[in-house]
Write a protein that binds this DNA or RNA. Structure first.
Lengths: 236, 236
DNA sequence: CGGACAACTTAACACAGGTTGGCGCGCGTT
DNA sequence: AACGCGCGCCAACCTGTGTTAAGTTGTCCG
């Protein structure tokens, strides 16, 4: 009854009770807990099943040979870690838990069966894939052409929207359980500079970040500061 | 007989003559020419058909409200511009020709028919989608965590490999028909700094770039300089 | 052949963001 | 209670890259 993937999808497509039951069933089996800072999938691993995040935050990251880490995606509850798992490809990056994480393991066969029984499931997976790709593009644009403060503002807008869709936003307040070094690796900067930028967003009255909770004081202002155009996420 | 998409796919999957004929047929109809600096699809447009690049280079780009441009992908001969076209989504970016470009327009119906007749076509499309996604991730890591010279070296390695796959590399020499401002927008830098970095790559004997032709003098050295690990493109 | 315009190239200067280092707090461990 | 340690926070300094501007080359077209 509490599947974040279903909550997300219901915003976009009309799900019948059987669709919901099918999607729910996928996420009930093989539930696993992963400690913070632990890998869910290692770099160059060859996953035979997909993971759906039920709780906690994870990230897709690449480690450069000299230790630099680039986080290329943030994975929130309701997100699918390995949308291509059924193709049995060797992945070129790792998936790591940023906080303690609860995931459901889903086998390719289960996905195949679900799609055959309920065509709407395929529709949902396509939407998921599209949204992920759109976010990738937006991140490239961000890291490439936005300034430090624009990047951070943009990310906060994105996360606010994504968390809202799975019912994890309490009004303008959303959980933000990641460390500043994590944010730095996601935005292509240093934790020191993240700290500076955060302070600037705070003193200009746009956000407050305390105790792993982000409160957006002025959403319009934040969106403007981050040149945020929400259409890329909506897919409607 | 000269379809770059087929040339690319044959590296990875075994195509029968009918597969080849089907893929070839897709690219024979509705061939269109687009001038350099012209859009193939505008930002926020709603493409009803996919485009396959037959000749020339294009890019996927986002324009920020104040005019900054971020190139989020380079599209080479054999690349598909709108792999999601059959989903009828409104795209969040534009596709522009960097050089004069020849494209084949493909309708969703044609793709559907082709997949139904020849299952291998679907396999090919999946591979294409996977490769594109892997490149996206690599670009995020590049812009986020690689230095200017590493980024440029990495891009040259990537392009060399991608162009080789469609038979457009003459040994260590590949066409490089884009301007330095274009490279700058793709790598998140300024054309001035691209110029500096290019000079550095030249003086260290790694590449020469003359008359829209890039020659790689020392591929191993270039790969090392760019922290380039080719596995992400192979998908085998 | 010559003019126009875009792209390339270089130099001087400016600044955003990186680096280093230090302090304090909160929390888990013993 | 004491310790360790990762994280938040801040300041001083440094550097890679951006900015501006100007001269040079290349290329297209009349």
């Amino acid at each position: 009854m509490d599947n974040p993937f279903v909550r997300k999808m219901e915003r976009h497509v009309r799900l019948g009770p059987e669709d919901r039951a099918t999607l729910d069933g996928l996420a009930r089996q093989h539930v696993r807990h992963v400690a913070a800072r632990q890998d869910i999938e290692g770099q160059h691993s060859n996953p035979y099943h997909a993971h759906l995040i039920l709780d906690g935050w994870a990230c897709r990251y690449k480690q450069l040979p000299d230790g630099r880490r680039a986080i290329v995606a943030l994975l929130l509850p309701g997100d699918l870690c390995d949308p291509f798992a059924f193709r049995r490809v060797r992945i070129d990056h790792a998936i790591g838990a940023l906080t303690p994480v609860t995931v459901a393991r889903i086998t390719p066969d289960q996905i195949g069966d679900a799609i055959r029984d309920r065509p709407m499931v395929e529709e949902c997976l396509w939407r998921e894939l599209l949204a992920t790709t759109a976010i990738h593009r937006e991140w490239i644009a961000s890291v490439g052409r936005r300034s430090a403060i624009e990047r951070l503002a943009h990310l906060f807008c994105e996360l606010h929207l994504r968390l809202s869709r799975v019912g994890l936003a309490d009004g303008a307040t959303v959980p933000m359980p990641v460390t500043q070094p994590d944010l730095a690796d996601a935005l292509g900067q240093t934790s020191v500079h993240i700290n500076r930028t955060l302070k600037e967003l705070r003193t200009s009255g746009l956000v407050t970040l305390r105790g792993r909770l982000l409160t957006i004081r002025d959403l319009d202002g934040l969106m403007e500061r981050g040149l945020f155009d929400p259409t890329y996420l909506q897919l409607a």
